[in-house]
């Protein structure tokens, strides 16, 4: 079975922000989670860009304040996160 896009994004988040399990992902917010500060944010952007081979726009980096927003941004790059 191939790993879904959503799973891949979850893995990027849990690995970069050093959180155990993906159950809490939906409540995480930028600057309100210990590892998700300005530096963590840049690491997260770089990790997502590498995993999905995309380059975000500056506006998208500013908008990516939670996991849901990251899903939407992937959608803007033509990567469907809903399945």
């Amino acid at each position: 079975m191939t790993i879904t896009t959503l799973e891949r994004l979850k893995q990027v988040f849990t690995k970069t922000l050093e959180i155990s399990g993906s159950n809490t992902l939906h409540i995480l917010e930028y600057n309100k989670t210990p590892k998700w500060d300005s530096i963590g944010h840049m690491q997260l952007v770089a990790a997502i860009e590498t995993e999905f081979d995309i380059l975000m726009e500056t506006e998208q980096i500013i908008d990516m304040s939670c996991f849901e927003k990251a899903c939407l941004i992937l959608g803007e790059h033509g990567i469907d996160c809903t399945s």
Binding site: Y30, N31, K32, S38, L55, M56, E57, T58, E59, I61, I62
Partner: peptide
């Protein structure tokens, strides 16, 4: 705080777009 941090980045983006465009 979070709000002012976001305002700072958006403001900077507005100013730098003039020379950098939206592409990183």
């Amino acid at each position: 705080d979070h709000e002012t941090g976001t305002r700072q980045v958006r403001a900077l983006n507005k100013t730098l777009q003039r020379i950098l465009g939206n592409r990183r």
